[in-house]
Amino acid sequence: MTDHKIKRFSTYRIAEHWVHMAIFIVLVVTGLSQKFHSLDVSMWLIFHLGGIDYVRLIHRYAGMVFLVITALHIIAGIVCVAAKKWPPSMVINKKDFSDAIHNIRYYLGVETQPAACDRYSYKQKFEYWGVLIGSVIMIFSGLILWFPVFVTRLLPGEIIPASKVLHTNQGFLMFLIIALWHIYNSIFSPEIFPIDKSIFTGSISRDRMLREHPVELARMEGRPIAMIDAMHDK
């Protein structure tokens, strides 16, 4: 019973993650090598990708794909949540803040138990919203930098260097969030090492559900949360 798999992600989500991952890698490689252009490794990379012009071209077309999948994600999310087809499980609520404080207290040894999270933990929600808002910033600033002549017909010229600051810093920030936080939580965290495969297989073990998403598990199994807590203690 304990290690039976529970369905967690639909095929759509699995595919979406794959595409996002691939595009993100392309954008990071072609983007950061431009940001840190004086590094030898950037030079090497750019020249082996066919020169700066090609790298910029790849970055822009990858950005187009990124725009499309991000837009689809947002539209699908808004429509389906509004139509009550999907539960608003990503919406940040009061419990997320109390969970965060609770967990810090737990890490410091004040609390005996970690916070009991729902479908998405506060860590996942904060990361999700951080990356989503970041993506929107990246898309808009990227488009402005791609079409400076058009943009300055409508907006003051200063918007261009400002967008450059936004794009380069936000891109770097997103890279850091993914490289440090996301990779830690889905690969290097001792609780899930060597890798969290749920986004690739679409299912998660009941054990991990019990540990990481007890509230959702309780709802799925129709038990009160207290029982789940009791199971946790065993």
């Binding site: 300055t152 017909r153 907006l155 010229g157 918007i159």
Partner: peptide
């Protein structure tokens, strides 16, 4: 180079 540059365009350069 930027054929359709408007009068705002040079402000893109600081």
């Amino acid at each position: 180079c930027h054929k359709d540059a408007a009068k705002n365009f040079p402000d893109a350069w600081l």
